[in-house]
């Protein structure tokens, strides 16, 4: 079974902080990492491979530095990797991104399952998975929390919906997005790290995957960012003074005044 896992390189946002005086992003010490939810997608791919055989192909679209996350992917079990990198891809929105990924996946041609993380930590849209499925014309299942079986060309999964779990079946090939409940991603293996160091990572350009002009990158993006700004915040709280007893007294008074209690 061949499994394609889509990865994205994102800034390690847990460290993103706003400088309160300049109100801008403090970038120091921020490393680029693989989107955390994508590592669950990769882990699931590797587990499926270990169980059913076949291989895991990790792909990402990004600048040349994004090879780093592909090397990380090798160290945790990916067999092959492909970097989609071309200046023509710059400025892609989710539509252009999924167009590009779809073209690359069509070029890979032999595959049974595409796995994406539910959403990214930076863009946070969760749109690439479903858009990709549609462009490939494949069945799509979001929020998969457990893959039950893969047999007879069909995949049976459990997925989270807001009020419970659904068991869903679809014919392969299919596209799924996974949630973090699905597994616990492993750390790299020593053999994987050794392999990752020397691995040749092929780069595919727009020409190589045969994208049509005006369908990828900024030119192929339907949405445009026209403004980026930082939410303004100033301290607004009325601080309640005194010892805990007094603070609580005042608070209860305030809540009564506001008719909340």
């Amino acid at each position: 079974m061949n499994i394609i896992v889509c990865l994205k390189q994102v800034p390690g946002t847990t460290e993103v902080k706003i400088d309160p005086t300049s109100n801008t992003l403090v970038r120091q010490g921020i490393k680029s990492v693989v989107n955390p939810l994508d590592s669950y997608a990769l882990e699931e791919g590797v587990r499926l491979k270990e169980h059913y055989g076949g291989k895991v192909i990790a792909i990402t679209m990004g600048p040349p530095q994004a090879t780093e996350i592909l090397r990380d992917a090798i160290s945790t079990g990916a067999d092959d990797t492909i970097l989609l990198s071309d200046i023509a891809f710059a400025g892609s929105d989710t539509l252009a991104t999924s167009t590009t990924l779809a073209k690359a996946i069509e070029k890979i041609n032999k595959y049974d399952l595409v796995i994406c993380g539910r959403q990214t930590l930076d863009g946070d849209t969760g749109q690439v998975g479903p858009e990709l499925a549609e462009m490939l014309g494949l069945p799509f299942i979001a929020y998969v929390s457990k893959i039950e079986t893969i047999a007879d060309g069909k995949i049976k999964v459990q997925r989270m919906v807001e009020d419970g779990y659904e068991t869903i079946e679809a014919a392969l090939p299919a596209v799924i997005t996974v949630v973090k409940e699905i597994n616990v991603p492993r750390l790299p293996s020593l053999r994987g790290l050794t392999r990752a160091k020397s691995a040749q990572i092929p780069t595919w350009t727009a020409q190589e995957i045969g994208t049509e002009k005006g369908t990828v990158g900024q030119a192929g993006s339907a949405t445009w960012v026209v403004k980026v700004f930082y939410p303004q915040r100033v301290q607004t709280a009325e601080m309640l003074k005194g010892d805990p007893e007094a603070q609580v007294e005042t608070l209860i008074e305030k809540l009564k005044e506001a008719k909340i209690i």
């Binding site: 492993r186 750390l187 790299p188 293996s189 020593l190 053999r191 994987g192």
Partner: peptide, 11 residues
């Protein structure tokens, strides 16, 4: 199990 997955029993 984590140590094993990461090949540390191989060294």
């Amino acid at each position: 199990k984590n140590l094993a997955e990461s090949d540390l029993f191989r060294i």
